[in-house]
Computed example of a mutant assay.
Amino acid sequence: MQQFSELQQRQREVEQSFALLRQEQARLSELQDSLQQSQQQLEEQTPESRFYQRAAKLVEKGADVEELMAECELPRNEAELLISLHSRR
């Protein structure tokens, strides 16, 4: 009788473990979907938007007009505009 009780207890533990594994699998699946969406969004960005994102980061770090023009191949007026927009924040 005690063996049967121990087996039932072990079965409940195994079932709980499987339930936790299913929950973790669902969470990992959601994370994978989220990562795939993020990757797709990055792939869909135009090269121009990547240059502007890089330029914005440089401005945040204190880059000047000349540096933006050289590093991001931006015309002077666009580099000045980015710096101007950043200073308004």
Rank of each mutant, 00 (worst) to 15 (best):
V14Q: 10
P47S: 11
D64V: 06
Q25T: 15
E24L: 14
V65L: 06
E67D: 09
A55Y: 01
E15Y: 02
L74V: 03
R27D: 05
E71A: 05
D33S: 15
E13H: 07
D33F: 09
K61H: 10
E60R: 08
E67R: 13
A70D: 12
L21Q: 05
Q40D: 13
V14P: 02
Y52M: 06
Q39W: 08
E66R: 10
L35S: 09
Q32D: 15
Q41N: 13
E48M: 08
D33Q: 15
A19Q: 13
E60A: 11
L35C: 10
L31D: 14
L35H: 07
L35D: 09
P75D: 09
L35Y: 07
A55G: 01
E13K: 05
A26Y: 00
F51M: 14
C72T: 00
L20V: 14
T46K: 02
A56P: 01
Q40T: 06
L21M: 09
R22T: 14
E48Q: 11
L31Q: 15
S49Q: 13
L31I: 09
Q32L: 11
L74F: 03
A56V: 05
V14K: 04
G62D: 04
S34V: 11
Q32I: 15
S29A: 12
L21I: 04
L58F: 01
E60Y: 06
K57Q: 14
S49G: 05
R54H: 09
L74P: 00
E71G: 01
L74R: 00
C72R: 00
D64L: 02
V59W: 00
L42G: 07
